[in-house]
């Protein structure tokens, strides 16, 4: 697998604030990645560094094997759809679509026009007059029609209704099947996109918490419910990502597969074991209270 992005020890500090703190990961060619985390976790900062829009404080950063800053070979192959993308005041929707091919060499005009129709975008309306959802839709059109080898969507569906979001997933998968490329979906709404993802990166507080295949993660966490002392006993030495005491009871979320023996033991202890969705897992991992602490040995 070709590595499209290689990041190691990447940090971005604003004074004493560590927006991104010693993050390392790689992105491989042709996969759909999810960059997940809460608002302000550092996702956007990382993406801005990948695209040389802001400057790193320290660390290594290679995109298509090279430094992205002022590098035409690299920048030519990236399309980064920002959540807060600014457009010139006088630009109409069609102006944006007219200038896009000047910057994205793989631009597919037919696809762009088909998407405009799908999303019912008013071509002659000025960008500043668009609703939040329409603004997102323009970003989606540009992102998909650019067919850039590395396409990054930052919170791509803000303001979109369920129908439009569904349309986005459909068109994304459809075009990705025909023209495979590396896609990064950055979002705090994990529920809907999780099925689309092949690989998941979870960021919290500027740090990389998780870097794993999505399929490995599904079913890799369990919810254990029962008498608090017995739950603690059972989970000793395991990675607990969430604890919710409830009277004398406790519900704990634990990472890692439980073996058949462990499940038997849980039944003997009178504990109930339930499944945990990817969304719940990420929420618990980035949830703030008592997150990802090691249980006492």
């Amino acid at each position: 697998m070709t590595k499209i992005v290689e990041v190691s020890g990447l940090s971005k500090h604003y004074g004493k604030v560590k927006a991104v703190d010693n993050v390392s990961f790689t992105l491989e060619e042709g996969k759909i990645y999810g960059l997940l985390g809460r608002n302000g976790a550092g996702k956007t900062t990382i993406m801005h560094m990948l695209t040389a829009q802001i400057f790193k404080t320290s660390g290594e950063l290679k995109v298509f094997g090279e430094e992205p800053y002022e590098n035409e070979k690299v920048l030519n192959r990236i399309c980064f759809i920002k959540e807060s993308q600014k457009y010139p005041e006088t630009f109409r929707v069609k102006d944006v679509l007219n200038v896009s091919p000047l910057f994205f060499p793989n631009w597919d005009k037919e696809l762009a026009m088909a998407l405009v129709e799908d999303f019912r975008l008013p071509l002659k309306r000025r960008m500043k007059k668009l609703s939040r959802g329409m603004l997102s839709a323009v970003g989606i059109v540009v992102g998909l029609a650019s067919r850039a080898p590395l396409t990054i969507f930052d919170e791509p569906y803000l303001g979109l209704d369920a129908v439009a979001r569904n349309l986005f997933y459909d068109r994304l998968l459809q075009d990705y099947a025909e023209y495979p490329r590396t896609i990064v979906l950055s979002t705090h709404l994990i529920d809907e996109v999780s099925q689309l993802l092949e690989h998941v990166l979870v960021i919290d507080g500027g740090k990389l918490l998780l870097d794993e295949e999505a399929e490995t993660l599904r079913g890799n966490a369990s919810n254990v419910v029962g008498a608090a002392s017995k739950v603690e006993d059972f989970l000793a030495g395991k990675r607990i990502i969430h604890r919710a005491p409830f009277g004398g009871l406790m519900s704990a979320t634990v990472l890692g597969q439980l073996s058949a023996q462990e499940r038997m033991r849980a039944t003997e202890l009178g504990l109930e074991i339930g499944p945990v969705s990817l969304q719940q897992m990420v929420v618990h991992m980035t949830g703030g209270n008592g997150n990802s602490e090691e249980a006492a040995q």
Binding site: K31, I32, N166, Y169, D170, L173, Q174, Y176, A177, Q195, L196, L197, E198, A214, E215
Partner: peptide, 18 residues
């Protein structure tokens, strides 16, 4: 096909392949 599965269930094609 893989891509039909992916499109129908709205899942990643690599997952459908698996």
């Amino acid at each position: 096909s893989i891509n039909q599965f992916a499109a129908f269930y709205q899942i990643n094609p690599a997952t459908a392949l698996k």
